[in-house]
Simulated scan of single mutants.
Amino acid sequence: MSSLFDPIRLGALTAPNRIVMAPLTRSRATRDHVATEMMAGYYAQRASAGLIISEATGVSRQGNGFTYTPGLWSRQQVDAWKPVTRAVHNAGGLIVAQLGHTGRAGHPSVIGEQPVSSSETVSPVDAWTYDGPKPSVQARALTMKEIAGIVADFARAAHNAMAAGFDGVQIHAANGMLIDQFLRNSANLRTDEYGGSIENRVRLLDEVTRAVAGAIGADRTSVRLSPNGEVWGVDDSDPTPLFVAAAKTLSAIGIAFLELKEANPDGTFVSSDVPHQSPMMRPHFKGPLILNSDYDIDRAQADLDGGAADAISFGRAFLANPDLVERLRLGAPLNDAQRETFYSQGAEGYSDYPTLAEFEAVARPAA
């Protein structure tokens, strides 16, 4: 049986341990969606993770619907990410870029146009804007030609990610964002080849993943899904056959790994009574499987021991503990995450969380 602290092969990458930093939106980029110097320090602090998955990064302005979040569609954005990836590599880490499109979750004041989705629907969740939360507006259903353009946007952003120094990419197909809006039938009301049947609803995920794999290699391509319960107003009436089909599709492409965010009934950030889908998906995906959501070290190791997962990704624990791997190794206490600074724009609650050594130095009484 493998330990959390054993290395693992993830496609082209060999991670030194199985403690992955989950993608975490932190809103520290500029209003032009350009990465900042502050972000280089933040990610480098967490380079002891087996692998860092970056915050969600837009493949186009249309698809970057959250405030102060980075993109990878322009030369300026590529150049701004280079110091971030360099800092992680200089600290001995690995980092992949999570690429996404927010779809109907975007607001016209942020993306400059009416949001798009699989269908003409309205998110029940307020949209993020620079003037605070506002009611979401009705999305416009994408045309066939536009869908092909979005597939191309993902492939272009993957090329840009590699040019920026990332070690690979993760396709964001979770959490109620655009690809998830095509996958699940609460949001996808289409009657063409992208709607209705499971095969049709999985089509965009398949096309995007194949395009990205064709651009940078399947061994540097990964995917994130959230297969159980409602997220950002998106849900499915029968998730098991849908996500088993998604697992088979992604396995056939040969991606580097699949990450699943599965909420628990007592989840501390997102909760769901819908059963976890990973046990049904696991036999159909032949690559490494990474699980996420509310893990502590005991549950994480138990899922490795039982064969439920090959690695575990940690979100808020990494947010608040730059040295999470060492803390878990020692069984040391963890810093608490400051929710009020999750999406603020300064260093507070971002790059100022103390390491265990720094905490002990402050707590040590004077001789």
Rank of each mutant, 00 (worst) to 15 (best):
D296A: 06
P115R: 11
D219P: 02
I290S: 02
M177G: 00
E199H: 13
A317F: 12
P365M: 04
L142M: 14
T121M: 15
A56E: 09
N17D: 03
G307Q: 11
R203K: 15
A174Q: 14
Q277P: 03
S48I: 03
Q277L: 15
G65M: 07
A155P: 06
N160D: 03
R329C: 01
F154E: 00
E360L: 14
R31P: 00
V202H: 04
N228K: 13
P70M: 10
I8M: 04
T355E: 08
P279Y: 11
S54Y: 11
T25Y: 08
D235Q: 08
R104W: 12
S2F: 09
G11M: 07
D310I: 06
D305P: 01
T143D: 01
V274H: 08
E358V: 10
A158Y: 07
L330Q: 15
D153L: 03
D153T: 01
M1W: 13
A127N: 15
A361D: 02
R203M: 13
A366W: 06
K145F: 02
S117F: 13
E113Y: 05
A252G: 12
R75N: 01
V274Q: 13
M21C: 07
A15Q: 08
V234Y: 13
D180E: 02
A246C: 15
L13G: 06
I198F: 12
E37F: 03
R86N: 14
S27G: 00
A164T: 12
D235C: 01
A163K: 14
I198E: 07
F5Y: 12
P70S: 09
R224T: 02
P135H: 14
R75Y: 02
G315Y: 07
S237H: 11
N321H: 08
F342D: 02
L189M: 13
I290P: 05
D153G: 03
S278T: 14
G307K: 12
G254H: 13
E146F: 08
A308D: 05
L324G: 02
